[in-house]
Amino acid sequence: MEAFLPVGILFILAIIISAGLFTVKRLLGPRNPVPAKLAVYECGVTPESSARIPFQTGFYLIAVLFLLFDVEAAFFFPWALVYKESLAEGPALLIAMLIYMALLVLGLVYIFRKDCLKLN
């Protein structure tokens, strides 16, 4: 736990810097709000509609795929850590990983075949 104490110190420093930036710009900058200045920016044209619009499902799909693959990739890390020490006990871990990897590649191929990554 003591190893993370400096991280706590760094966190406090980072908060101070962020809060400082936040305050300084408010203290130094002038304020002169007029409606036209505060309007939404759409290249100078009057905004057509709200920006709370539905977005492409492609982005959602990428998020779902990321979740799957990142969790799967996370399983590699503990394996990678113990792999070197287990080398003396034969290729059991290597083979286990290869099977797992094959399943992962199968999933990847499935994504490509289904064309899940097509945006637009």
Binding site: V7, S18, K25
Partner: peptide, 26 residues
């Protein structure tokens, strides 16, 4: 000049930059 546009969701809008800077610092 500090401009907070009228249409924004104020709390999240103000939080945004700090939330990017914090992880970058950590």
């Amino acid at each position: 000049e500090v401009i907070i546009p009228s249409q924004v969701n104020k709390a999240l809008y103000l939080l945004g930059p700090s939330l990017v800077l914090l992880p970058a610092s950590l």
